[in-house]
Structure formats: C-alpha cells, structure tokens
C-alpha cells in the first residue's frame, strides 16, 4: 500500500512536470535554445557608448525596398552572378557575399524578377550552408516554400523576412556577430553599387537622396567592424569603407549632385570594393 502511494505520488509529480513542459513546448516549440548570460546578445562596447544589447543594423531587405520605392529599377547584369556562390571558400568571402546575395535577392524580388530571385535565394542558402548556418533553411523549409510562391511578391517578401529573422536570431544566439557585420557590409556595398551604377548613367534625385542616407548605417558598421580590425581582411574592408564614407560625408555636406568630382570618386570607390568582394580578391 505504501509503495502504491509512493508510485502514485511519483506519477502525479511526473504528470505535473511533463504537463508543464508540454504546455511550454506548445508555446515555445521543441528543441528550444535558451539565451544565456554568455550568449552573443552580450554586451558590445563601442567607442562611443556601452550598449546593453548588440547594436542593431537596418535590414538589407528594407534598404532594398527603400531604393525600389525611390525608383531603382531592375537592370539585367547589375547583380553578382549566382554561379559565383560555389567559388567563395573562406568564411570571410562567404559572409560578405551572403550579404551581397541577400541584396540581389531583395532587388530582384521587389522588381518582380521571380526567376532570378530563386537563383539568389539558392545562392544565399549556399553561403549559409558554408557558414554552418544550415538551420536557417532546414528548420523552416524555406527553399520549397520560396519556389512554390514564385510570382507572388508579397509571399516572397514574407519568406525573405522569415529568413532574415532566422539568421538574426541564430547569429546572435551563437555569438557570430562577425558574420552578421560582414554580411551587412556585403549588403551595404551591393545596394550602394547598384544605386551608383544607375546614378552614373541617369541622375535621379530620389535615389541619390536614399544613397546619401546610407551614410549613417555605414558609420555604425565601421564602428562595429572596428572590434575585428586586427584581422587583415577586416582591416582592409574597414579602410575601404572609411574611404567611401569620406566621399559620402562630402556629398552629404550639401546634399547635392553638384560635387561632380566627389560623386565620380564615390562611384569608383564603391565599384572597386564591390568588384573585389564578388571576385574574391
């Protein structure tokens, strides 16, 4: 009788314990990862202030949308080739080109170039797989869902945003902010490249205004990358971005395209850096 009572008590405890956990699993999903004090969401000290959270950067998808609304139209051949995805070997080139392809994907999607978009979606997956970020796509079944929604821009944008969220959470949870910053750098370079190439041929005040508006996020990016300046590739990237910022600062000083020489310098600097990134040299 005593034994029966003990087993009954144990059974009740187990039921309570697992009952609660089942409820938690329903709410939170299985295979949960819990943030810890040592996670990437840990403090990041910058030159200017101590932040309680890792500083957030703008979404490359949103930036692409801002440019599209300003009148940035799709021009074939402007993007990186999705076929280049297989040639990026180092974590550095994979990380930067992850950003490049994210911008190309957004650029095509917002301009209703669905077939090109699927190629870039796969290129993004190739980059994330190479960086051991496979759960972004595997856990969400994103590629088949993207293919299924070809032609439906709203659904594709929703899926891109889901990809962006999965990536953001994973990189912060696994303390891989170097990948996050390099990827943002690649996205920033690619969107600025497309904008400057279009402005080079045809001036558009709205696009120029949005391009000059990227100066703030560039400054923030340079500050964040500074934590990695001891690495050669990072140092070179920081130097190139700082040089570009010098031109943007000058152009922003009067917010006009009258500084023709400075604009030409900006175009050249962005072009040189972008080609170096996509050609991996």
């Amino acid at each position: 009788m005593m034994i029966k009572t003990r087993f009954a008590a144990a059974a009740i405890l187990l039921t309570v314990a697992f009952g609660c956990n089942q409820k938690s699993d329903k709410e939170n999903g299985a295979a949960d990862t819990t943030a810890t004090d040592t996670s990437a969401a840990g403090n990041l000290e910058t030159d200017t202030q101590v932040q309680d959270f890792v500083q957030s950067l703008p979404s490359p998808i949103h930036v692409a949308k801002i440019f599209q609304r300003a009148g940035l139209k799709y021009i074939p051949g402007m993007t990186n080739s999705p076929g280049n995805a297989a040639k990026y070997m180092s974590p550095y080139s994979k990380s930067v080109n992850l950003g490049v392809y994210t911008t190309d994907l957004s650029y095509c999607t917002f301009n209703n170039q669905s077939q090109e978009a699927i190629s870039f979606f796969k290129a993004v997956k190739t980059m994330t797989d190479g960086l051991n970020l496979t759960s972004i796509f595997e856990g969400t079944n994103l590629v088949p869902r993207f293919e299924k929604n070809i032609g439906n821009t709203d659904s594709l944008v929703t899926l891109m945003a889901l990809m962006s969220m999965e990536s953001d959470f994973l990189l912060k949870q696994t303390s891989r902010m170097d990948i996050a910053y390099l990827s943002f750098a690649g996205a920033w370079i690619e969107s600025s490249y497309i904008a400057t190439q279009i402005l080079k041929n045809k001036r558009n005040q709205d696009i120029l205004s949005k391009l000059l508006d990227q100066n703030h996020s560039l400054g923030k990016l340079i500050t964040l990358l500074d934590a990695y300046k001891d690495k050669e590739e990072f140092a070179s990237l920081i130097a190139s971005l700082t040089d570009i910022k010098t031109s943007l600062d000058a152009l922003n000083s009067e917010n006009t395209i009258a500084h023709e020489e400075e604009f030409k310098k900006l175009v050249e600097k962005v072009e040189k850096l972008r080609n170096s990134v996509v050609n991996d040299n």
């Binding site: 943030a35 810890t36 004090d37 996670s39 969401a41 840990g42 309680d52 959270f53 890792v54 957030s56 950067l57 703008p58 979404s59 998808i61 949103h62 949308k65 944008v157 929703t158 945003a161 889901l162 962006s164 969220m165 953001d168 959470f169 912060k172």
Partner: peptide, 10 residues
C-alpha cells in the same frame, strides 16, 4: 510589418 531586428537577454 517586416522583421528588422530583435534582441533578448535574461
């Protein structure tokens, strides 16, 4: 709204 960023810590 489209996701931009998120952060969380205990």
């Amino acid at each position: 709204f489209i996701f931009e960023s998120a952060a969380f810590k205990p």
